[in-house]
Design a protein around this nucleic acid. Structure first.
Length: 280
DNA sequence: CACTTGACCTGTCCGC
DNA sequence: TGCGGACAGGTCAAGT
């Protein structure tokens, strides 16, 4: 799933729900999903939830839990209180656990956090130090020290790559995946196939703005749900209603009505408006 | 070196 | 209805 806005959405949800709770039990239903000895976090208290790139971190003091949702991961929290004072509202949590549930965290107040992952690409791991995994990650695009010059410098390490492929490289900028790379190219009015070496200063600036805007909108609308993504309450995000190009193959461009085209770039579906997004 | 393809998994959708 | 292939929010490793 999950690119930066989706992981951020989950982070914001979990911050309100599980910070301060104590982990009482961990059930690992899919051994390859969990790296480390799950029982070592029993009794630990959740101090904070954070995000770096597409990785979610749960601060347990002496240890941290890192979670990557890859393509189909979900983190759904069930406070177990829906039956108090009336009828439960139907929602995704009613079906927890389901056949994609890989890890279940139980807290001392009886609430539970479910890690679901249809394709099992995602992982949960316990680490003492957070460092190593992050060494190759580029800057956080929503931090204010992410300038267009930094973006330009990082992109220029991939001179002969198409813009869209370079944007998805996590060492260039953290957290941009297929959806938001497509959207950023649209907002920058650049053909996604354009090679980095052909970009001029003005275009690096537009790309910089496009990345930030698309990610901010992604967060604003609660993320993108094509098939799998849901937030920590099991609700879908609706950014795709506002997306200009992603998953809009052969639909009219929202700006000029030209048909959106779909091609393959770097092995991934790539969507663009051939009229709004000009090659140089 | 840079770039592409395959692998990791499971599910769905589409054409024959 | 069944079967095969393509494809899906990501990231590595291996191959060319």
């Amino acid at each position: 799933m999950p690119e930066l806005p989706e992981v951020e959405t989950i982070k914001l949800g979990l911050q309100k729900k599980i910070v301060g709770l104590t982990i009482k039990n961990i059930e690992v239903l899919s051994p390859k999903t969990f790296i480390g000895n799950a029982q070592t976090i029993r009794g630990k208290k959740v101090l904070n939830i954070w995000r770096k790139a597409k990785i979610l971190g749960i601060d347990l003091g002496s240890l941290s839990l890192l979670i990557h949702l890859k393509m189909t991961g979900q983190l759904i929290y069930d406070d177990g209180k829906r039956f108090i004072g009336g009828h439960p509202t139907p929602d995704m949590r009613d079906e927890m656990p389901n056949k994609t549930t890989r890890v279940i965290f139980s807290f001392s107040d009886k609430s539970k956090l479910y890690f679901n992952d249809q394709r099992r690409f995602g992982w949960v791991r316990i680490v003492k130090e957070v460092g190593d995994l992050f060494k190759k990650l580029g800057p956080e695009p929503l931090e204010k020290d992410f300038t267009w010059q930094i973006l330009k410098n990082n992109l220029l390490k991939h001179k002969s790559q198409p813009i869209k492929v370079a944007l998805m490289d996590q060492s260039v900028v953290s957290g941009v995946g297929n959806i938001y790379a497509n959207e950023a190219c649209f907002l920058a009015k650049l053909d996604p196939r354009t090679k980095i070496k052909d970009l001029k200063e003005e275009q690096f600036k537009r790309l910089h703005k496009g990345i930030i805007k698309s990610l901010q909108d992604g967060i604003k609308y609660g993320g993108s749900s094509r098939a799998h993504f849901v937030d920590s309450e099991g609700h879908k995000g609706y950014f795709l209603d506002y997306a200009f190009v992603y998953w809009r193959d052969s639909k009219p461009c929202k700006v000029c009505k030209t048909k959106i085209e779909k091609i393959q770039l770097g092995g991934r579906g790539t969507y663009f408006c051939p009229n709004c997004q000009k090659a140089l």
